[in-house]
Amino acid sequence: MYCYIYDDFVQERKFERELAAIEARITDLGLQGKIVRLALFRHPNEIIEREVASGVKTVVVVGNDETVHKVANAIVDHHMVLGIIPMGTPNSMARILGIPNGVAACDVLTKRNIEKLDAGRVNDHRFFTNISFPSSRGVVRYEKQYDVIMERKGDVQVVNLETDPEVGLMAQPTDGVLDLFITQYVPGRFRKRQVQSHLPLKRAQLLFEDAVRVEANGVEITGNQFMLSSEPGALQVIVGRERSI
């Protein structure tokens, strides 16, 4: 049983024709289901709780990356399958997962090729793509085994699924680990050189000298201690043939 969650913005006039075409294609493919519209004060968690009770097994997001993150976070604990019909921008997560924009995404849904993706956790918040910490000095503590100490300031990124290929930090979201990158500048012969450390982790603590503010897929967190962990195979998602993972 399908439930379609439309983001607020897809109800704008400019998406009217595309949305009508999507709905027609869904009917043709026999994938009809309940349609729920997100609104400013309507949290996805409440919607999902209600749909779980009515026996929904697949939730299809009609929207952009932000919509996917909101809904994905809500469905993980209920072991539901996530489908995506990308509309609007940005839609980098759908692109990585091989899901074409608009109507063509309906054909991906019908094939039901399901992949289990890892999720990352930072303190009590879940993320599916990556989080970037601002330039600071810090320590990565691997349980009580060892510390990785940054001797100078650097940018820290924790990547589960990199959505920007330009960044060059592609990580595999099905390997059960998060990839932590530390980018620093060290003195060179004529000018500073960029160096990058790469630390795979299942669980580690990230400690900074000063409090920093980070954004984890829509949630802002401020502090100087962050508990990082990987949740292997947490999100079941319908993917396309052209996926790059």
Partner: peptide, 20 residues
């Protein structure tokens, strides 16, 4: 682990500027 970044597949890199 199958990291596909700058450092190569599955490799842990302790670069200059970092102490373990």
């Amino acid at each position: 682990m199958s990291f596909k970044g700058k450092g190569g597949q599955g490799e842990t890199i302790i670069a200059e500027g970092v102490k373990v």
